[in-house]
Design a protein around this nucleic acid. Sequence first.
RNA 1: GCGGGUGUAGCUCAGUUGGUUAGAGCGCCAGAUUGUGAUUCUGGAUGUCGUGGGUUCAAGUCCCAUCACUCGCCCCA
Length: 414
Amino acid sequence: MKSLQPVRGTHDLLPDAFRRHRHVVDRAKAVAESYGYQQMATPIFEFTEVFKRTLGDTSDVVSKEMYSFADRGGEEVTLRPENTAGVCRAVMSNGLRQSLPAKFFYDGPMFRYERPQKGRQRQFHQIGVELIGVEGPLGDVEVIALGAHILDGLGILSRTKLELNTLGDQESRAAYRAVLVDYFTARRSELSEDSRNRLERNPLRILDSKDEGDRRLVAGAPSFQEYLTPAARAFFAAVTSGLEAVGVGFEVNPRLVRGLDYYCHSAFEFTTTELGAQGTVLAGGRYDGLIEMMGGPSTPGVGWAAGIERLAMMVADVPSPARPVAIVPVGAEAELHALRLTQELRRSGFPADLGYSGNLGRRLKRADRIGARVAVILGEDELARGAAMVRDLDTGDQSEVALEALQDRLAQFR
RNA sequence: GCGGGUGUAGCUCAGUUGGUUAGAGCGCCAGAUUGUGAUUCUGGAUGUCGUGGGUUCAAGUCCCAUCACUCGCCCCA
């Protein structure tokens, strides 16, 4: 055994943390279902090709962040770095193109070999939605509104900002990209080292550079607006007016770009200033070309993913678990009665806890520690009378209750 | 992948220019109270000082390496 530490960038989710995660997922799922999105799951690993083809060879995810390996049969597989590709693959594998549009919600672990930071781990968890088969801007509006609704349900919408941009259609993007490459190539020597790399790999990324010098150059760069085709312009206008119609606030950020190749038209990010360098909390866009890149027929799609860890860090209060009834036998005689009673209560829907050992004091102490609301004390005296002592652990009040009336009495504490 | 910071008890942290048995608070355990927790009082236990090397008469303290965390960059959820 190498050590007792978990692998770098992975973490145990102990009950308190797990409850936060569960809360995020449960609330998100409930809202998503109210929009008609149904939960589904794909395998956490796929053939490496699935991600390579769709994310683009030059993306950071593919070039340096994938957990890839050959399995015992020699198949090249990869732990999923994101789930959109997997969902699209599943649509094809299962012949779901027959019944489009399809609306999916998912949650689960993702894997990226990155240097860990706050809000960034090698195994992290995402929730996400995918709307497949809708080519109009109404799809974009619905998906973004759903994201906002979920953040609102978690009580954090007001602490985020929705940034929105259009990446246009293929035609617009190709035209703009060419102009942009010309512009920056002419000023190559003035670019930062990072941006010189971007010029090769993903020139649009230069627009989003944090480097001072780059920013000055970007200010003078040609604007995407001028290269949008009328169709792409109309699409974006429909998205923005749709969002206005449903009351989702946003800010157009012309420099917002996506790293992954398959995006087009809408790109959006809900960001926060509360999480340090990892400000993006929920992000996505339209990916009309993705399924085609995988070898399927052209099929439109829009979706987003959100980091559960990041959301969980922002969520203030999470509901506490139900407070159990503690069953406390006094003396060996009472143990079997207590065991029986505990099971009865559980079957009747009362969360109930029977300590494993100890005297009355010790058991009450444990009852207190696990957050029990009431203790049912079963002593020989009480049992002889067919009764039990019911103690309110918040107030310390206690009174004897006949066993037949016990459940009615306990119901008062719920 | 690049640059900075940190690592001492279960948790949060103190530990002087290197000097003998490494401390506090919280938590934990026990007793006060053999049928009453939470409150109070009294007592107790706890540590490969992240790991491995080195310097030194002597290292928690200085040096090197390594691992992990953390902040920023890249990129992203």
